[in-house]
Amino acid sequence: MGLSKIRQIEAHDDSELSFPPEGDAKPYEVFIQLNRGQPHVHSGTVDAVDGKMALSYAKKHFGRDQECVHMWVVPREAMISTNYDGEIIWPLTDQGYRLVRGYAIDVRRKWERFRDQEELDRYQDDDIKEMF
């Protein structure tokens, strides 16, 4: 059989390897941007010994499945994160006053004094299209 030379391995043994554990290289988080104007999104992690190597690996690994215009790699140790357990990011107090939903119903009710139903629906559609 014309099997490639490097793959013709017959010897087999389950003994321990002759060298000690090597340890892993440093993890770098990879963020890709699919098009200009879009945010960078987390795509995966590569292990590398320095940033240059990490970027080179990230390009080949995470930059080839989809078209991609830009990429960041960040050493994981440089990332500072929150904790899921008990750390508050989104305040528990109602924040309706700083959100659209805090006003939407009131505004519509108030408009009803000035406009009929059909007009109001059209206005609301336009509102969604033009303003948001």
């Binding site: 490097i6 793959r7 590569v46 292990d47 590398a48 080179s56 690996y57 080949k60 690994h61 080839r64």
Partner: peptide, 18 residues
């Protein structure tokens, strides 16, 4: 291409194969 799947480092395996 014959190194695909058997290169020294997984990330390099992918890069060299590319």
């Amino acid at each position: 291409s014959d190194w695909t799947g058997v290169a020294p480092i997984l990330e390099e395996d992918i890069a060299f194969s590319a």
